[in-house]
Amino acid sequence: MENGSVQNFNLTNNHLNATFDFVLKAENPNRRISVYYDYIESTVMYEDQTIAFTTIDPFYQPRRNVTRVESKLVAQSLSLSQATFKDMRIEKTSGEIEVDVHFKARIRLKVGVWKSDHRTLRITCSSVAVHFSWYKHFDKVPCEVEV
């Protein structure tokens, strides 16, 4: 995970409103294989509860390429348990919130004119600290990748 931020974060009456923005750096160093990302979904989790979800436009990644994948996830009037609401309020006072960000994609590999069947790519970015202040630096987070 290369960058992340949260805007319009509001906790009221056990409900959450927020907009999360994340940038994932997808590297394809291979000189022969290119990748089709046919379907991508992105999820933000807080204490094992999904708090925001979105899909990302499909794209093609050529050989020896770095692509930045932007994901904007919105939580709108999301109902939270009393315990989750309390924990989020505490984290808000610390100036940042720690979330897990998941990406799940259906991909195909291309070598020459041959294309593979669909495969599932899962990316998990754990313990992503997102700051409420725009001037705070985002620390890059390594993510686990599974095909």
Rank of each mutant, 00 (worst) to 15 (best):
A83S: 06
D139V: 13
Y37V: 08
A75Y: 03
G4P: 06
H131K: 12
N17Q: 12
S79F: 05
Q76T: 14
K115C: 10
Y39P: 00
G4F: 09
S42H: 09
Y135V: 08
D48L: 05
T120F: 06
N17M: 11
D87T: 13
V44W: 08
T54Y: 04
G112R: 13
V44N: 08
V35W: 03
Y60Q: 08
S94K: 15
Y46A: 01
V141Q: 14
I90V: 05
K115G: 05
E91D: 09
S127N: 15
N28P: 05
A83F: 03
H131T: 08
E41P: 00
V6R: 05
A75I: 02
F22R: 07
E70L: 05
M45T: 04
V128P: 08
F22G: 04
E70G: 02
K115M: 10
G95E: 02
D100E: 02
V69W: 13
Y36W: 11
I51M: 07
K25Y: 04
S94N: 12
A83E: 12
Q49V: 12
T55I: 08
V128M: 11
N10S: 12
S71Q: 00
A26W: 05
N10D: 14
E70Q: 10
H137Y: 10
T93W: 00
M1W: 13
C125I: 01
N30C: 01
Y60W: 10
I90S: 01
M1Y: 14
Q76G: 10
S133L: 13
N13K: 15
Y37R: 03
V44H: 04
H118I: 03
F53E: 11
E96D: 02
V130E: 05
S133I: 07
V147N: 12
I90M: 00
Q49T: 13
E91G: 04
V111G: 00
A52H: 09
Q61D: 03
L78S: 02
Y46C: 00
D21A: 09
R64L: 06
S42C: 05
E146W: 12
I40Y: 01
L80P: 08
N13R: 15
T84M: 01
T50G: 04
K110C: 07
E144F: 13
F9M: 11
I51A: 01
K92E: 11
A18Q: 08
S42W: 02
R64E: 12
A26G: 01
Y46V: 00
F9Y: 15
A52Q: 14
H118A: 11
F20Y: 15
